[in-house]
Design a protein around this nucleic acid. Sequence first.
DNA 1: ATCGTTTCCGCAATCGATTATGGTAAAGTT
DNA 2: AACTTTACCATAATCGATTGCGGAAACGAT
Lengths: 335, 335
Amino acid sequence: MYKRATLKDIATALNVSTTTVSRALNNKSDISDEMRKKVWEVARILNYKPNSLARSLRQQSSDNVIGVILPEVDHYFFSTIIKGITSSIDKNFLIMIGETNHDLEREKSIIDQYLEHFVAGIILLPTRHVQSIANIKTLIDASIPLIVVDRTIEDYEGNYLRHDSFLGAQQAIDHLIQKGRKKIALLRGALECSVSADRVRGYKASLKNHGFEIEEHLIKVCPNTSKKEAFMACNALFTESDNPPDAIFTVTDHMAAGVYEYAHKAELRIPQDLAVVGYSNSEISDVLSPKLTTVGQDGFELGKNAKAQLIQIIEHPQFTCRQILPSSLIVRDSS
Amino acid sequence: MYKRATLKDIATALNVSTTTVSRALNNKSDISDEMRKKVWEVARILNYKPNSLARSLRQQSSDNVIGVILPEVDHYFFSTIIKGITSSIDKNFLIMIGETNHDLEREKSIIDQYLEHFVAGIILLPTRHVQSIANIKTLIDASIPLIVVDRTIEDYEGNYLRHDSFLGAQQAIDHLIQKGRKKIALLRGALECSVSADRVRGYKASLKNHGFEIEEHLIKVCPNTSKKEAFMACNALFTESDNPPDAIFTVTDHMAAGVYEYAHKAELRIPQDLAVVGYSNSEISDVLSPKLTTVGQDGFELGKNAKAQLIQIIEHPQFTCRQILPSSLIVRDSS
DNA sequence: ATCGTTTCCGCAATCGATTATGGTAAAGTT
DNA sequence: AACTTTACCATAATCGATTGCGGAAACGAT
């Protein structure tokens, strides 16, 4: 059985104490240059790598484990965020991952587990039901480096990073209006979801700016932002009134797929009879026919950025991050 | 700052040694029933949770951290596997995740990092370039619980779990032949990829079983299994010969999307002029129009299963797992 | 020569758990 | 009564690193 070299091995080899070795390797003071060099040399030869468990235990804090918490790992947007986090290998951070399935209890439980493991910091994508800082209070009190990504949390004053959903939605509606659409419906997500709320605000703002009336019956709620819900909502839009919409904006691309399905069944042509704009620029937007116009939010960059910022926060406790990234409309063939 | 209760706190409260407390909590011998009860009671009151770092350090092995290694976290199939692994919360295992991007060096480096962290076991989805057990030799020598998922590794004798790609491909071709197709092309992946190789074997086996000739020029290689490569390969198939295929089987759904795109451009109707069958039952197969016939392999179940089996291996060193799960054809509208 | 400063390094405690070894008192044995 | 066994618990070492404190040697100043 292979055994890794320890501080003691280096110390024995040089006939010095482990204290000296530790200080030499961490480039601390009270060490002569000569000794420092010798220690580094032996460490290299023995292929020494510090035992991070021992270090974490002693320091009461890991220095290379980041905990990630998100609602659903198999949603394209989230999975590209994970890719952004895992693919940059700076500092060799290890990534722990926990999935909440939008369950607040589960979220709390994962946070506790991360705390027990002395993670160096946490990247949190809150559930869509988050209403308060209850779950992260422990983190705040203990000053655990934390960055809240994608969603907002009421009364939370700490570090965050997210896309500008308000602006994204506004761009989408601006675009539809510019294309001559007069009656634009909106399929939104859960009422308590901050992201969805921002997009609704963007929708309304754009309509107002162009002197359009806001018709509440054109706004349908799809709590799970699913394809099926969107299909049903679409059905409602076209059967409840004999003055149906000529454009639909959905807050996810999946919902747009539901609209496509309804349009296909109702023999509505996209974009001639009905323009569709989705949100996320997920992979299905390029596969749908006609290709879907959508608001692009780059998950990869978001994840990469979140990790970089968190590392800054870990290394410089006074560092703060309050960033809102721009989204940009990607015009394809559905509008 | 909140501080967790330790063995020592319990020991002090009861005026006994930490030895006694440890043994009582771990239900070992040399402890009176009376003492055991008292210890458990105090532990409950103080909300004691063992420090897993300290435990791992002492035992030279964690008991609740699983390391997962896979090629690309944002591919739908892989992300559903992650979901399968993370969503079952048995035993409160923590999940570490590493992405190789099909880079063997990176794979090795992640394995080393996991070893340094004394993970209890590893779920490995090898890169498509894997040719030998070089990367996992350390794991085997050190008897680290390991399960190889999705792909095979030459000369590897340990635990594995994967889908039956041979059978899946065979079913797909059987289906196309039964539908009356006479000239079935195949878009395959990288030559060194075992999964792709299995599917090619299935393709050939089915053709042979039905008395068809195998025409090598109908088999095109798309090393990255991308949509664009598939589009190009398709173009080649239809321009190189004036006797083009009437059906195409692709080893991923994304490649099928490439075929769709070519068909659209070349004004070929699916399925009338060209039948298409994909592989994976990814989310795009339900979004493509017409909906894609594909071979279903359930990533969620695979992940869940892999985790359950690994836990068995961790807890019972003599336990072995050699499973090949069936895939099943999902017939939709493209064939 | 004496005292004060640096410089450089080691001792031992510490993080929180596990465990080999040993010791004491009660119970059992002949 | 003397000896052995059993039950139960404590002491201390251990995992691999970090760090407060202290000590010895070298050097400079008076």
